[in-house]
Each structure stands twice: as C-alpha cells, then as structure tokens.
Computed example of a mutant assay.
Amino acid sequence: MLGQLEHELELHVPASEAWDLFGTLRLGQFVAKELPQLFDNVELIEGDGGVGTVLKLTFASGVAGPSGYKEKFTKVDNEKRIKETEVVEGGYLELGFTLFRVRLEVIEKGEESSIIKSSIEYEVKEEHASNASFVSVQSLATIAELAKNFLNKNKPSKEAT
C-alpha cells in the first residue's frame, strides 16, 4: 500500500534564508530545542549534512509508538532547495512500513517570501495496512510553523544591511 501526505506554509523570508535552516543540520538542532515534548534528542550519527548523513531521533517519554528511529539523508539539492530523508532503522519500519520518506522543499515565491512544502511518502506491507493511519504531517506542520516564527523573529533588519 502506497501513500503520500503534503503540507505547505508560506514563510515571510527569502527562500535562501529558509533553506539555511531547512537544508542543513540546523533543522535537527532546532527541532530538538523547540519540541522537547516530542523529541528528547536529535543526534548526528555520521555525515556533515549532505547525502548519506544519518541522524538518530529519540522521542520524548510518553510519546506513543517506537522510542525513535534513524534517518538517512538521501537527497540534498541546494540549487532546487530539496532535502529528502528516509527512515533506515526503527520507527515506522517496526510497524510494517517498507518506505518512509520525508521531503522538504523550499520554493521561492518572491524576494521576501517563500513556501516550505513538506511531504511524506510511504509504503506499508498489506498485512500492516491499518498502520497507515499512524502517518500524519502534523509534526511537519508544527515544525514549519515554529520555523516560520523563528525565522521572522531572527530576520535581519533592512537597516542593518
């Protein structure tokens, strides 16, 4: 069984500024700091933020489901501003999924505006098809909203440039 979910949010910062957060390892640090109710830790296992980078995400105690998972960066395109990660250990794989991919794309909308498009693509074995109901873009929507507020607060003022 295949599935895909998407979420989009307009950011009031240039695409280059949004990509400086979403396209780098800063996003993992940001998530760990801003969402302690969801994640206890986001740990760099290997890599420098490029393709092949592996992160270990540990959920906070009390979060339903697996205690965490490892994800691998499978695509990082700085020109098109696209990053894809796949769960390679734990998490959804323990629930019968054979693929769980998150794609983040920063789309330039204007000089001072961009869109963060988040999507989840998954494949789950037929005998575990009911577990597809666990897939949600809510955490990606929450991360996008927190990032929007963070980027707006930390936007360089035009007078300073």
Rank of each mutant, 00 (worst) to 15 (best):
Phe22Met: 10
Phe22Asp: 01
Thr24Trp: 13
Thr24Ser: 13
Leu25Trp: 06
Arg26Pro: 03
Arg26Gly: 12
Leu27Ile: 13
Phe30Met: 10
Phe30His: 04
Phe30Ile: 05
Val31Arg: 01
Lys33Gly: 08
Glu34Gln: 14
Glu34Val: 06
Glu34Arg: 06
Leu35His: 12
Leu35Ile: 12
Pro36Phe: 10
Pro36Gln: 07
Pro36Trp: 11
Gln37Pro: 01
Gln37Gly: 09
Leu38Asp: 04
Leu38Arg: 12
Leu38Trp: 06
Phe39Trp: 00
Asp40Cys: 10
Asn41Ser: 15
Asn41Trp: 00
Asn41Lys: 15
Val42Ile: 14
Glu43Lys: 15
Glu43Met: 14
Leu44Thr: 11
Leu44Asn: 07
Leu44Glu: 03
Ile45Tyr: 03
Ile45His: 03
Glu46Val: 11
Glu46Pro: 01
Glu46Lys: 11
Gly47Lys: 05
Asp48Thr: 10
Asp48Ile: 07
Asp48Val: 08
Gly49Tyr: 09
Gly49Leu: 08
Gly50Ile: 08
Gly50Pro: 04
Gly50Met: 07
Val51Met: 13
Leu55Gly: 00
Leu55Arg: 11
Lys56Arg: 15
Lys56Ala: 10
Lys56Cys: 05
Leu57Asp: 05
Leu57Gly: 02
Thr58Arg: 14
Thr58Asp: 11
Phe59Met: 06
Ser61Thr: 14
Ser61Val: 13
Val63Asn: 03
Ala64Tyr: 09
Ala64Pro: 07
Ala64Met: 07
Ala64Thr: 13
Gly65Lys: 07
Gly65Arg: 06
Pro66Glu: 11
Tyr69Trp: 09
Tyr69Arg: 00
Tyr69Phe: 15
Lys70Ser: 09
Lys70Val: 00
Lys70Glu: 09
Glu71Ser: 09
Glu71Thr: 04
Phe73Gly: 00
Phe73Glu: 02
Phe73Arg: 00
Thr74Gln: 02
Lys75Trp: 01
Lys75Val: 15
Lys75Leu: 12
Val76Ile: 14
Asp77Gly: 02
Asp77Glu: 09
Asp77Cys: 03
Asp77Met: 00
